[in-house]
Design a protein around this nucleic acid. Structure first.
Lengths: 155, 155
DNA sequence: ATATACTTGACGGAATTTATCGGGTATTCG
DNA sequence: CGAATACCCGATAAATTCCGTCAAGTATAT
């Protein structure tokens, strides 16, 4: 799990798609104008999103992209992992070329931290983000409630 | 808050420093050998860590680096923010050049996600990581307990 | 007191990632 | 049928990350 601007752009674009996708396909040109992300970069990102079956594409005039699943079934973690690809994270990932003395010291560490990151980002769905955008005033409450829910489950 | 290999290297190095720092300063050459991180890169990282008052440097023979605070007062978030520097994250950060229609749509979103990331990473201290390394067998339990504690607080 | 061994600190280049530009292909409407 | 629209996919440019090299500083031993 890696957090970069690439993943952020992807989530922003998907949120825009979710908010404007009520009336047929949404063009990347529209997302580009609204979110000020270059069209070429959007094409690259949506290519990966499509291959990971997060969106469907419709070619030709009047075409564009649509969400492949319902809002509740797409999490932030899904989007980020789709565009950011692997990242071994532990530097010895599958290679097992760790040192003798304290082999894989960082392995357990990052594995656990990654799990925590993923767990949280996976608990936030596109539907949550849309709801958060709908009511701009108390946008905080949504995620706060989300945390409370997660905490209750883990307890 | 950005998660890259840079921050991971820094945390790994700080953990090594914490585990070997009982008997005076620790040399970067030692950390480099143990963790297989290039000495040059470590020098760059520890320059930032020193400027953020996370470590103290001792020059001359027998010199090296020591922790500037106690183990409980250094969190993973401290380390990552020290080496990763700014990152506006919201693309309109302080510039306020957002678009008219949905200005700063991503602002609230990433601000909240960042807060959550930071909150968790700040709850994990170096002392926790050292304890986790001490008992390799059930290393999972440490962070699991940590989560339970955090959940109890937030409830 | 001075030379020396050992350290941190700063500058510059290779490799990876991020972001962009161009041509190409499929689909729909006139 | 043909032309416009919009997705698709290669290669290219910019930025960041990562690492090697050199200069500056300090304590110890002579």
């Amino acid at each position: 799990m890696r957090l970069t601007t690439k993943g952020r752009f992807a989530v922003t674009a998907m949120l825009d798609l979710a908010m404007h996708g009520g009336k047929g396909p949404v063009t990347l040109a529209g997302i580009s104008q609204r979110q000020s992300i270059s069209l070429s970069y959007l094409e690259q990102l949506f290519g990966k999103l499509r291959r990971h079956t997060l969106v469907d594409s419709v070619r030709g005039p009047g075409g564009g992209y649509t969400l492949a699943r319902s809002l509740e079934r797409v999490s932030v973690a899904d989007i980020i992992t789709a565009v950011d690809e692997p990242l071994d994270a532990t530097q010895c990932g599958g290679k097992e070329n760790c040192h003798d003395e304290q082999r894989c010291m960082t392995h357990d560490l990052w594995a656990k931290l990654n799990d925590k990151m993923y767990e949280y980002l996976d608990s936030v769905k596109l539907s949550d983000l849309v709801a958060q955008q709908a009511t701009r005033k108390n946008a905080v409450s949504v995620l706060q409630d989300k945390r409370g829910k997660e905490a209750a489950v883990s307890a």
